[in-house]
Design a protein around this nucleic acid. Structure first.
Length: 201
DNA sequence: TGGACGATCCCCT
DNA sequence: GGGGATCGTCCAT
């Protein structure tokens, strides 16, 4: 029997990010937007913490990073490179600036609607298009329709939440260094499902 | 007030 | 493997 799909509770998020981030692997991301239901499975994440030079919350509390300092269980969405959005799950207690970046998702449901957002067409034509649909933090934001208006959004639903998921018996979690950071290179604060085709290549 | 740069992606070679 | 797109944020003047 399938378990009911319901939001992971706030207490799930209100733990240290180095615990929460790897625990997110296999979780479902559930999104209702423009009358479409979109579902994916998280397969790659990174942790960012207040004492970490690579984190937006390093040094000062500012207007941009304010959401990271809120209680765990909200979405932190930021704009970068002049054209992309990236989505994070805020973790830890209030006033602790930490979050887990969603880097890759395996699309499960609503793929035609995701394709429409990503490529302007509702039918995928190549395997490459399927793999590029949600592989990467900005790609998954575009596919799931996440943007500026979603910054600070609660993950208790109904239009956006994460739900308990499963890792397959043969699926192995691997930790590695983070992508695209110039400081804090040595920290192995990226986790992914080994061999999953949506993980960054 | 301005300049440098970024938790990226895409297309070209 | 490399570079361009493109603009909000931050910090140094």
């Amino acid at each position: 029997m399938d378990a009911p799909v319901r939001p992971l509770p706030p207490v799930f998020y209100q733990r240290p990010v180095l615990e929460v981030a790897p625990a997110l692997l296999g979780s479902l991301i559930v999104r209702r937007v423009d009358r479409h239901l979109l579902v994916g499975r998280i397969v790659e994440v990174e942790a960012y913490r207040e004492d970490d030079p690579a984190s937006h919350s390093y040094r000062r509390r500012t207007e941009r990073n304010e959401v990271m300092f809120g209680p765990g269980g909200n979405l932190y969405v930021y704009f970068t490179y002049g054209m992309h959005f990236c989505a994070n799950v805020v973790t830890g207690p209030e006033d602790r600036g930490e979050a887990a970046l969603l880097r890759a998702v395996e699309p499960l449901w609503g793929i035609d609607a995701m394709a429409d957002r990503r490529y302007g067409k509702r039918r995928l034509e190549t395997r490459r298009e399927l793999l590029d649909l949600t592989a990467g933090p900005a790609r998954l934001c575009e596919a799931f329709g996440l943007g500026r208006k979603d910054n600070g959004r609660s993950l208790q639903g109904p239009d956006m939440f994460l739900a308990k998921g499963q890792l397959g018996a043969t699926e192995k979690v691997v930790s590695a260094t983070r992508i695209g950071v110039s400081e804090g290179k040595e920290k192995k604060w990226r986790w992914y499902v080994d061999g999953n085709p949506w993980v960054s290549r």
